[in-house]
Amino acid sequence: MRYWLFKSEPDKWSWEMQKAKGEVGEQWDGVRNYQARNNMREMKLGDRGFFYHSNIGKEVVGIVEVCALAHPDSTTDDPRWECVDIRAVRDMPKPVTLADVKNEPRLADMALVTSMRLSVQPVTEEEWKIVCEMGGLKDA
Score class of each variant (00 low, 15 high):
Met116Asn: 12
Val96Gln: 00
His71Cys: 14
Arg106Lys: 14
Asp78Trp: 11
Leu112Ser: 08
His71Ala: 15
Thr75Pro: 00
Arg80Lys: 14
Met116His: 11
Asn103Leu: 01
Lys102Arg: 13
Arg87Gly: 04
Ser115Pro: 01
Ser115Asp: 09
Pro105Met: 10
Thr114Leu: 10
Val84His: 03
Ala108Ser: 14
Ala70Ile: 07
Asp100Glu: 06
Lys102Leu: 05
Val101His: 02
Arg87Asp: 04
Ala111Gly: 07
Met92Lys: 06
Pro72Gln: 15
Val66Gln: 08
Pro95Ala: 02
Glu65Gly: 10
Asp85Leu: 03
Met116Lys: 13
Met110Gln: 09
Asp73Glu: 13
Pro93Trp: 00
Lys94Leu: 03
Val113His: 06
Ala88His: 12
Ala99Leu: 05
Asn103His: 04
Met116Pro: 06
Pro79Lys: 15
Asp100Ile: 02
His71Lys: 15
Arg80Pro: 00
Ala99His: 02
Trp81Cys: 01
Cys67Met: 11
Asp109Pro: 07
Met92Ser: 07
Val64Ala: 06
Asp109Phe: 07
Thr114Gln: 12
Val61Lys: 05
Met92Val: 10
Pro72Asp: 15
Val101Met: 12
Arg80Thr: 05
Lys94Asp: 03
Leu98Asp: 05
Leu107Pro: 06
Pro105Trp: 09
Asp85Met: 04
Val66Thr: 14
Gly62Asp: 02
Pro93Thr: 00
Ala108Asn: 10
Cys83His: 02
Pro79Ala: 15
Leu107Phe: 08
Asp85Thr: 11
Arg90Asn: 09
Val89Gln: 06
Ser115Met: 13
Met110Ala: 14
Lys102His: 08
Arg87Pro: 01
Ile86Tyr: 03
Ala70Cys: 12
Cys67Ser: 14
Trp81Asn: 01
Lys102Gly: 06
Thr76Leu: 10
Pro95Gly: 05
Gly62Leu: 02
Pro105Lys: 10
Arg106Cys: 01
Ala111Glu: 08
Leu112Ile: 15
Pro105Gly: 07
Thr97Lys: 01
Ala108Cys: 10
Met110Gly: 01
Ser74Leu: 15
Thr75Leu: 13
Leu107Thr: 05
Pro79Phe: 12
Pro105Ile: 07
Asn103Met: 03
Val113Leu: 08
Ala70Pro: 00
Asp77Gln: 12
Ala108Leu: 11
Ser115His: 14
Arg80Leu: 10
Met110Glu: 10
Thr114Met: 09
Glu104Ser: 03
Thr75Tyr: 08
Ile86Ser: 02
Glu65Ser: 11
Asp77Ser: 12
Glu104Val: 02
Thr76Asp: 07
Val84Ile: 14
Glu82Pro: 00
Val61Glu: 02
Ala88Tyr: 09
Pro105Gln: 10
Pro105Phe: 09
Arg80Gly: 00
Lys94Arg: 11
Asp78Ala: 11
Met116Tyr: 09
Ile86Trp: 03
Val113Asp: 02
Ile63Trp: 04
Ser74Trp: 11
Glu104Gly: 01
Val96Phe: 01
Pro93His: 01
Ser115Ala: 13
